[in-house]
Design a protein around this nucleic acid. Sequence first.
RNA 1: GCCGUCGUAGCUUAAUUGGCAGAGCACUCGGCUGUUAACCGAGCGGUUGGCGGUUCGAAUCCGCCCGACGGCGCCA
Length: 445
Amino acid sequence: MSEEEHAPEQNSLGKENFAPIEEILEGEHTGEEVKIRGWVHRTRDIGNMVFLNVRDPSGVVQTTIASDEFEEEKFEDLKDLLVESSLKVKGEVAKDERAPGGYEIRASEAEIVHASDDFPIHEDQSVEHLLDNRHLWLRSRRMRDILNVRSTVFEGIHEFFRDEGYEEFHSPILTPVACEGGATLFPVEYFDDQVYLTQSWQLYAEAAIFGMGDIYTIAPSFRAEKSRTPRHLTEYWHAEVEGLWHDLDDIIDLGEGLVLHLVEKVLEKNREELKNLDVDLEYLEDLEGPFPIITYEEAVSKLQDEGMDVSYGEDFGVPEEKKLTSLFDKPVFVTHYPKEIKAFYMKRDEEDESKVLGYDLMVPHVGELIGGSVRETKVESLERRLEEGGEDPSIYEWFLDTRRYGSVPHAGYGLGVERVLMWLCDLDHIRDAVPFPRTPNRYRP
RNA sequence: GCCGUCGUAGCUUAAUUGGCAGAGCACUCGGCUGUUAACCGAGCGGUUGGCGGUUCGAAUCCGCCCGACGGCGCCA
């Protein structure tokens, strides 16, 4: 291949040996000639000199473009660059008090990769405008920080379950059945039939444990609920686990273990991001097990002692959750809810048939982080509870089969990944825990 | 599903409570060799979300619709 034919998009600055801006800001290249590449973060033009602050995924550094270093036409082109133009710059790194961050690059060469159009996002933007331009807002430091933490959380979930000996199992996204009640499913055309987007991996997982043993997943779940709150998405990522021969204590330990592992993991990998996000690092650092465990009954009486108007048998609303979580300095497990306010698949407590062997793990500002339970193992009980819930048991025949052929005790839970991020990053709204949020009013971009 | 707030230039907003739609940022042009949200001067930019009504006159008042945001409920 001749020189002309080879990689015409490459230029005098080449494609190698570019320094991450972070290293320059840490003083690693002071006095050296370096190359950087990235986007124009801000410009200031004072005539025969231009300041271009350049951003890459690791940071922002000021570059100085002096007219006597460039041919006139090149200088004019650099001077005209708008915010978010992409470019490569070569120059000497200088430590200089006058530069934001304390370091700057005095450019000797520059290559404009793409001169940007007028970028739609500036300062003082409304929530609405940033959501409409989410594809561009992902370039912000805030979104970068959150998504870095998100990446760590996904890594941490896989790591935790695999270290504990759980295998990854996948359920179908398209399913013919509900899991938590039929009114909240997104219908999907399936040739001449109708199926639904899954709400949960669980029912399929309960079939899989007979072959695979202990399993987990991280997968999207969908809820067609018009929930207008700061902690609901219609599409969210659900970390779920199902453990063979597990009882309530086992899944409490497993829930606490996962949460503590994720805290440890993000503190290890994302300290900078958490600082940028103004997170209370001390709270996370001081967090350790065991988390408090109280029964639903105890929770109700605690709330009553606090003067709240709740009676036994009601599910907790937002004010109750807020009050309850404020009484503890750690996440709190609430166990043994009345069966009426929980799902059909939860096992009854043999000591009190009106209660189920399940829990919610609750944290301040976010509410329920994990919901878990021991699963009902008797066909008759499941059929009865489905009927009580107004459902047709015949749709669940395949699921009921799991209780007909060597039924075994087992338990599991589901954790809302975006809710964990909300808690870890101290976010006001769950939509910031995901790059392209889906809410009842918004599915673009 | 219910309750509430809002919709004016690309963005953020003002408009004396019904009387000439104005500004800042961005952008364009001009000036400036150390700016820090640079600064100085000029310019471009409006179907005031849409439709209808009241009025001599509507961004402003009324009705309907659309959209967004916040809260409750439902849930992870």
